[in-house]
Each structure stands twice: as C-alpha cells, then as structure tokens.
Write a protein that binds this DNA or RNA. Structure first.
Lengths: 185, 185
DNA sequence: GTCTATATCAAGATAGAC
DNA sequence: GTCTATCTTGATATAGAC
C-alpha cells in the first residue's frame, strides 16, 4: 500500500512516522520502527547507521515533501487572488495528503530526541516566511499564519487537537481570510 | 533568587523546568533534575513517587501560574478596549514573567514522555477559547490567536524560535491588532 | 528528609552468521 | 540485505542506613 514499497529506506521512514503518530515520540524506538517496517533492529541499522541518522532523514524528507506539495499546488493555481500563503496553509493543513506522509511527525520526534536537530528547520521557517511575504503579505501577518497553521498541525500529530472537524474548517477558513484581508490593507 | 527556596517540591519543579529549557525534554532524567535541585535521586523520589508524578505536578503548576498571571493582569486592566484575549496574549508572551516559571516547558516535557498526559491540557485549551470568546471575539479568531501565541512560546522554550526581538515585538503587536480588528467586525 | 547502594529493565549499538 | 545474539549504557525505582 505505502507509496514506497520498493525502497527500504523510505519504507522505514514511513514506519517511523506511523510510530510517532500512533504512539508518540517517546515510543519511537529502533525496535518499534523495525517491527512496524517488518524487519529487525539489525536490518534497520544496516540502512541507518544510528538513530540520529534516521531522525535526520525524517526531517529531510519532511522538507522535501512539503516543498513538493507546495509546488504541486502552485501548478494547480496559475493565477487569481491566491498567493503563496494560501498555498502554504493548504499544504500544511489540507486533508488530501497521504496519511503516511506527515510533515510534522518528524519535527515532534526530533525535537523530543534532541532540539539541536531542529536547527535546520528554523532556517526553513525563515525561508517560508520570506516566500509568504513575496506577494504582498506583511511579515507579521505571515508569521502569525505560519505559527497558527504549524501549531494546529502539531497538536493533531500528537492526537491532542482540541478541535473537531467543523471547528477545524472554520479555523482554516479564518487563516485564508487573514491572507486576503492583509493583502488589501 | 528562586521564588520557592522554602518549598522542596516547588524547588524540584523549578529545577525540572530549567532542565527542559536548558537541555531539552530528552534530558529530563531524575538524575538531572535532582542534581539541578541540589539533592539526590533518592531525595527527589521522596517528594515525587515517580517521574509521572513529577510531570503531572509540572502540568498542574503550569495551569495554576497561567491562571494567576491572567488574574493579576485582569486586575491591572479594569476597563477600556482591552479584553480577555489581550490579557491572554500578554500572559503567554510578555517578558516580565519570571524566567524560572515557564508555562510551556511542562507541555514539552510531558508531550515527549507520554502524550496522554496532555489530555487535561486539551480541556484547558477549550476553556481558554471559551474565555476569549466571552467578550465578542469570534471562535475562529480566538483559536488562531491561541495557536499562534502558544506556537511561538513553544519554539522559544525549545530555543528554536526563528525570530529576533524586534520581529517578536511585531508579531505580538499583530496579535493584539487581530483582537481589536475582530471585535469591531 | 535525604543519602548510598543496588536491582531491574529498556534502548542503542556491534559482531558475525546466513 | 537481513537475522540473532550480545555488549553497554543509562534510566527508573526500591531498600534501608543516617
């Protein structure tokens, strides 16, 4: 089923994300990942020399997927009132992403293991804000939108979101409205 | 120095927060906490029967401090354009809080150890949104503000905020503006 | 109320067989 | 490329002395 049944490394990362989403970062052990991927610890460590290498690759793939998702969406949105911020919000929060490709599980897992691993993600954040402000959105508005979208996704990955489906839709709609409103200001 | 030099339990929780802020949730071990508090593991476990009891108490104190902070601020803001949302934003993000009383370290530590511990925090979030909407703020605007404020604080506790002091001030100002703007709508 | 010593266990990582 | 067996470490928790 997974989109990576061919590539062992990809399958292992899929498994790691599943573990984080299903059981929490605490339970992201080599044994749990190997078991979920259908191999042994030894097999896992052939592909990733140590746990940090696995986490690092999770972060790397997270960024790749988020970038791809944005690019795809950009292609589908040739012109009109939509801008980069709208694309970003939908990339992070829209539901038609594969459930096995989560952009936030890697952040949670890495942050729990060692916050230092998140240093590259911090740079990414700067880049994203630069992107969002490219077409007229103010810095502060872009920052608030990014923080809120990421915050919501984070709670969801922890299975701790306090919002139901309807509230979630209202929040996304509000974020989108905040984009348009600011552009007009 | 510490505001709790009298009470051993409070001093231990102070130490635990310091460990999370300084070294990350991963390094929140009984040894690290005991050492920071100036006692031994045995001494620590006299006051908290196990690690979960410590985390639980951290979450409990977090809520207590946040509530107190909001109350104090409410007393200083008898009337005027300020509403509950402004009080909340400043309680979470203002800098004149004691650096040893962090509201987010407990969330990070507990989430890393066992996301289940965060279940009560989720209820709190609902309550906070209910408070914020009491005086005219819409649900979706309140949710966005809460998510953004908490998200920013979270990155800061992880020492991973991508924003400098000036950018931070602009973001807070934007959050406050979003309150007034919505109330007028 | 705090200490030392220790039991127990889980997790990361290595070595070598297949 | 994957497995089993094993080493090592570090963390929780207990027991009992002071």
């Amino acid at each position: 089923m997974g989109s990576h049944s061919d590539n062992a490394r990809e399958r292992i990362i899929d498994a790691a994300e599943q573990v984080v989403i299903g059981a929490g970062a605490r339970h992201l052990t080599l044994e749990a990942v190997a078991s979920k991927a259908g191999i042994s610890r030894g097999g896992l460590l052939y592909h990733f020399h140590d746990k940090e290498a696995l986490l690092s690759e999770m972060l790397h793939r997270r960024k790749k997927h988020l970038d791809e998702s944005r690019m795809k969406r950009r292609a589908k949105t040739p012109a009109g009132p939509e801008c980069e911020a709208v694309i970003y919000i939908l990339s992070v929060l829209d539901e038609d992403r594969g459930i096995d490709r989560d952009v936030s599980a890697a952040l949670v897992a890495s942050g729990a293991h060692d916050p230092e691993l998140l240093a590259p993600a911090r740079e990414d954040f700067h880049q994203i804000i630069a992107d969002l402000t490219k077409d007229g959105l103010s810095f502060e508005r872009a920052a608030v939108i990014m923080l809120a979208a990421n915050g919501l996704r984070l709670w969801e990955v922890l299975s701790m979101s306090p919002f139901n489906a309807k509230e979630r839709r209202r929040i996304i709609k509000e974020l989108l409205a905040l984009v348009k409103e600011d552009k007009g200001a």
